[in-house]
Computed example of a mutant assay.
Amino acid sequence: MHIRELDPSASPLDYYGYELRRTREAAGLTQKALGSIVFCTGSLIGQIETTQKVPTREFSERVDAALGTDGVFSRLVGLVLRSQLPSWFQPYAEMEARAAYISSFQAQLVDGLLQTEAYARAVLGARDEGNLDGRIAARLDRQRIMDRTEPPAIWAVLSEAVLHQEVGGREVMRGQLAHLLALQKRRWLEIQILPFEAGAHAGLMGSYYLLRFQSDPDIVYTEDFVQGHMTANPQALREGSVRYDHLQAAALSVDDSAALIIRVMEERYGSEPEADGRELA
């Protein structure tokens, strides 16, 4: 059987595949044998070794346990997943992972940190399904910062339009809105909805992020359909902060925002028709 040769210096994914194959062969295991140990198919092992599939953190932890590699693959997978993000977005993702405070305003979509897997799949696959699983895994991996012992404080203001923009269908949207409600139970995360009734508001120029750090300069981040823009310019930070204050003031309170999410979820996405056309309660 022809075995694809990998250049381990080509990318983190290539290095991961190269090391997985090298370590597996050193242990005297076939792909099928390793697969049976880590609860997957030998085919999947082969696809990861040849960079056709992106490994997950769970897979990496099982491989470390199976091959006795002392956490090597668990540490490496973070670099692999980060590399699946667009190159222009990677610098922001690195800063996001270090931030102590994250404030965001989203005009059209749910913040990436707050997305469900199904919603992320619909968003990322809207125009391009290439390497979709890898890109989804990278987006969801960003959310690990919320599970730290000391997570960043996150404040998200979402336009009410976000709740009505049906991304992925009714079932996906219902799951996403339910996820937002569940996230609001975290004491360091607040979600406000900017209602349609607010009219003209400070966020009409588009979505953006403010990141604050314990010791590094604060930054403001915006993006267009081509690339992202990150700056620590004091004037930009001042403008972004003032605009955010106005957005928070115009938005519903956290409790009223939760009530609106519930109402939209029930009225717009509350029931799905059965196969015979009957409505489910």
Rank of each mutant, 00 (worst) to 15 (best):
R4C: 05
P12M: 11
L20P: 09
E25V: 15
G28Q: 06
G28D: 05
L34F: 01
F39M: 12
F39Y: 14
G42Q: 05
I48H: 02
E49D: 10
Q52G: 01
P55T: 10
R57I: 14
F59S: 01
S60P: 00
L67Y: 09
D70L: 08
D70N: 15
G71N: 06
S74P: 00
V77I: 12
V77S: 08
V77Y: 07
L81D: 03
L85W: 11
L85E: 09
S87Q: 05
W88C: 04
M95Y: 10
R98D: 15
R98Q: 15
A99K: 04
Y101C: 04
F105C: 08
T116E: 06
R121I: 09
G125Y: 09
D128W: 05
N131R: 14
D133K: 07
G134S: 08
A137L: 12
R144A: 15
D147R: 14
A161L: 06
A161T: 07
V167R: 05
G168D: 04
E171W: 05
L177M: 14
L177W: 11
A178C: 05
L180K: 07
W188L: 14
E190R: 14
L194K: 02
L194S: 02
M205R: 11
M205D: 10
Y209I: 01
L211A: 06
S215M: 02
D216K: 11
D216M: 12
D216P: 05
F225V: 13
V226P: 00
N233M: 09
N233I: 04
P234V: 13
Q235Y: 15
L237M: 13
S241R: 10
H246W: 08
S253F: 07
A259D: 11
A259E: 10
R263P: 00
R263Q: 14
E266K: 11
Y269H: 07
G270A: 08
E272R: 06
R278I: 00
A281F: 09
